[in-house]
Amino acid sequence: MERTARGDEGAFRLLVERWERPVFGFLERMLSSREEAQDMSQETFLRVFAEAGRYRPDGRFRSWLFRIAGNLARSRLRRDRVVRWIRLEPLLHDPPDPGARADDLLERDEKRRAVRTALARLPDRQRQAVVLQRYQGLSYREVAAAMDTTVPAVESLLQRAMALLKKELAGERKEQ
């Protein structure tokens, strides 16, 4: 990061290549769209480059990185909701049909879709906490730093999210 902050393009390229998959994975689960995630990944790294001088090495880099990606994802989600409200039309990358219950998606190859459906139905902040903690492997403390909140608040978000996921994925659990 120090070399990136000094404008070292080679160092920045290594950083992008090291983190592009986790950032894309996080954004794809947040936005439920691969195209949007691709676009926002690029935006995230441009923001990292622009703000590299402000990064303080005392914090964890990935918390800082996911804070940038999370802020971009959430503002994109907010913007899309406003656009949808103004146009009175559904989002292209909306979660699947709300009428379709996760427990109807019983086929083995549908399990991933059921998980995505359940994740997409979580409130944004709960989804962000789950994706960071379960899929990106951040500790509660790192999630708190990435979401600009406290560890107890993260625990509460995770607890509520898990209760909703448990309910949504009840059908899948019976399959186990």
Binding site: F24, G25, Q38
Partner: peptide
Amino acid sequence: GAEPLRPVW
């Protein structure tokens, strides 16, 4: 999870 559609760099 999914892979990026193309390299980001």
